[in-house]
Nucleic acid binder design. Structure first.
Length: 287
DNA sequence: AAACATCGCAACCGCGGCTTG
DNA sequence: ACAAGCCGCGGTTGCGATGTT
């Protein structure tokens, strides 16, 4: 195995045309073949000089305006490339080195809750980037789960028919995982669910949030798509209270990000609690 | 020592969603 | 209300490093 702290950029002189196939960073249909290759912009590994230019510029001017940043910073890169380099490597807060067991555990639990929402997961793990976590998942954790007989996508046992398992096998890690998986969903059973109108601060409202709370946690507005997309909840769980833009709309004046953050915290804590609770019960049964 | 296989990471691509005019 | 532009995300690729034969 080689050291995880690979040299920053692979520092091959001049771009080797890393990454994928041809084509620029063209975005939507309206956006013409804009950046990178088509405009003679550089691609591939970053040099130390480029890193310095980018870091210096962002220190002076701050992040953002990625589209125009390269030109102003004197870089022959597209904005996307600059943003990626900054976010994943140059940002001072980026932590390097091995993922600790604690972090690994957190990633597993968050992935079980959120699925492949790497940016959301990364947001809960200080100093780690979505790219790093995604890579770590793909190269380590998914294989680890598979070797334990767990489907890394669903976090359920790979064997569709658990009845053929030897029930005396107490050590089955997938069994333990399945228990904790089940416990993860328990909090939602007692959730208060309903559609909520979120004030966007400009007088407009959004219907795309779900009102979620438990007996012991503050109710919070969570982007509905974030919950549904990963089967944290499904359509069937949504109560159809649909009131359109009148004064009866439920207004929640809070930042969805903060709410989602605390919501995740509560889920993670629930997860820990339920796992411990389950362990206690198991020990009790073993006696 | 050389050739081949595998691993791990940085970087790219394309798409969707948000913002702005 | 609509269109165009920009940003951010998740999936994928390419390549150097390392391990194995």
């Amino acid at each position: 195995m080689r050291s995880p702290s690979l040299s920053p950029s692979k520092q091959t002189p001049e771009a080797q045309g890393g990454g994928g196939a041809s084509g620029g960073c063209s975005s939507k249909k309206a956006e013409p073949m804009a950046c990178c290759s088509n405009l003679g912009l550089k691609r591939g590994p970053w040099t130390a000089e480029e890193d310095e230019l980018l870091a210096d510029y962002i220190k002076r001017e701050g992040e953002g305006r990625w589209r125009t940043l390269p030109k102003k910073a004197g870089l022959l890169r597209c904005g996307k490339s600059c943003r990626l380099r900054w976010m994943n490597y140059l940002r001072p807060s980026v932590k390097r080195g091995h993922i600790s067991p604690d972090e690994e555990d957190l990633i597993l639990r968050l992935h079980r809750l959120l699925g492949n929402r790497w940016s959301l997961i990364a947001g809960r793990i200080p100093g780690r980037t979505d790219n790093e976590i995604k890579n770590y998942w793909n190269t380590h954790l998914s294989k680890k789960l598979i070797s334990q007989g767990i489907d890394p996508k669903t976090h359920k046992p790979l064997n569709p028919n658990p009845s053929i398992h030897d029930h005396n096998k107490k050590d089955s890690s997938s069994e333990i995982h399945q228990q904790s998986l089940t416990s993860t969903y328990v909090p939602f059973a007692s959730c208060t669910l309903g559609n909520a109108m979120i004030s966007n601060g400009d007088g407009s409202n959004s219907h795309d949030h779900q009102f979620v709370g438990t007996d012991h946690h503050q109710q919070a507005a969570v982007p509905k798509k974030d919950l549904m997309r990963n089967n944290v909840i499904d359509e069937g769980m949504i109560m159809s209270i649909s009131k359109d833009g009148d004064d009866d709309d439920m207004m929640i004046n809070c930042c969805p990000d903060d709410a989602f953050s605390s919501f995740l915290n509560s889920l993670i804590n629930d997860d820990v609690f339920n796992n411990q609770h389950q362990d206690d019960q198991d020990q009790h049964l073993d006696i």
